[in-house]
Design a protein around this nucleic acid. Structure first.
Length: 320
DNA sequence: AATTCGGGGTT
DNA sequence: AACCCAGAATT
């Protein structure tokens, strides 16, 4: 029996997709995931909830291939929240290395201490308790619930947003910033909310939809030839229309920015054996005002400490 | 709602 | 050189 024709726009703006379409999407992608899932260490059954949480924080804006080796060393060194909570901040920042956004490393450290203090060292499975932890936002809380505890939750990351935008909304890319409509659409496809399904099915869909977006339904050049749901994809049915939001996206500058300068300073402090004199930082050849500004902000963020006693003063990674 | 916050691989 | 990446916190 031939599949019914797919309308060019399967979901009206603000509307909900049919239960039949949702079921087909979820079941097909989930079945595909069972066969094609990457063997990532934080997906192993023996991986603890703490290991999952660490992976999610590291994966906030950092690609899987760069996270994996750091995650392995991290869990070997600090197997649980209590062990990590006892670490020196300087060691934490060195272990974080070049994953980027080092404030995440400090938040994860605060997070571990909060887990020890509030939850006896065990990662909570409650949404509001997770959200109350430093560095845990809407996405990460949902992801931990799904991946560490197998609980039903609405996991909406950049991959899921793109998969839903294409398959159900028929657009090349989701809006630049997540909208309430997207969250509602994401919720409506999770097994157990609108369409029936178990917690296990919901958690499996969360992992599967993310994986499809990461591996097949990619931002740049999607591999539609390998996509299990190409046959029901509204974007494909519409003839791959271009991105409506193109041009409005902010191109984030890098060269000469404070972010780059901060990164250079942090690299210097990480690699230093002892305290770094101000002169060594000034030798990074950015302009003086910028270095001063960045140094001040790093001190404010707790990413560096200053010893004003020597002249010139010296700077180091923070200690407790 | 808009900004800030790294860094590196891909196109 | 622009784009992208399992986002969160702050303003």
């Amino acid at each position: 029996m031939p599949a019914p024709p797919v309308p060019s726009r399967a979901v009206a703006p603000g509307g909900a997709p049919s239960a039949e379409l949702v079921t087909r999407l979820v079941e097909t992608v989930s079945a595909w995931f069972d066969v094609h899932a990457r063997d990532l260490p934080w997906r192993r059954p023996e991986c603890s909830a703490w290991g999952v949480l660490v992976s999610e924080v590291m994966l906030q804006q950092t690609p899987v291939v760069r996270v994996e080796p750091v995650w392995r060393e991290w869990l070997k060194r600090w197997p649980d929240a209590a062990a990590f909570a006892a670490a020196e901040p300087a060691d934490v920042l060195r272990a974080w290395g070049r994953l980027g956004y080092p404030r995440r490393a400090l938040r994860l450290h605060e997070c571990a201490r909060a887990i020890v203090e509030r939850h006896g060292g065990e990662v909570p499975d409650d949404e509001s308790l997770l959200r109350a932890l430093p560095g845990v936002g809407e996405y990460t809380a949902a992801a931990v619930r799904a991946f560490a505890f197998g609980r039903r939750s609405v996991v909406v990351d950049t991959n899921v947003r793109r998969v839903l935008a294409r398959t159900l909304s028929g657009t090349a890319l989701p809006p630049p910033h997540p909208t309430a409509a997207e969250r509602e659409l994401a919720r409506s496809v999770v097994p157990g909310f609108v369409v029936p399904g178990s917690d296990d099915a919901a958690a499996r869909w969360a992992a599967a939809s993310m994986e499809l977006g990461a591996v097949v339904c990619t931002a740049r050049s999607p591999r539609c030839g390998e996509c299990p749901v190409a046959g029901l994809c509204a974007w494909r049915a519409a003839g791959y229309p271009g991105d409506e939001h193109t041009g409005r996206r902010r191109t984030q500058a890098w060269h000469g920015t404070d972010r780059q300068a901060r990164g250079r300073i942090m690299a210097l402090l990480r690699d230093a054996v002892g305290p770094v004199p101000l002169e060594a930082i000034e030798a990074l050849e950015a302009d003086r005002a910028q270095l001063t500004r960045c140094l001040t902000s790093l001190l404010t963020d707790g990413l560096a400490t200053e010893d004003p006693r020597p002249d010139p003063p010296t700077y180091s990674l923070p200690s407790r």
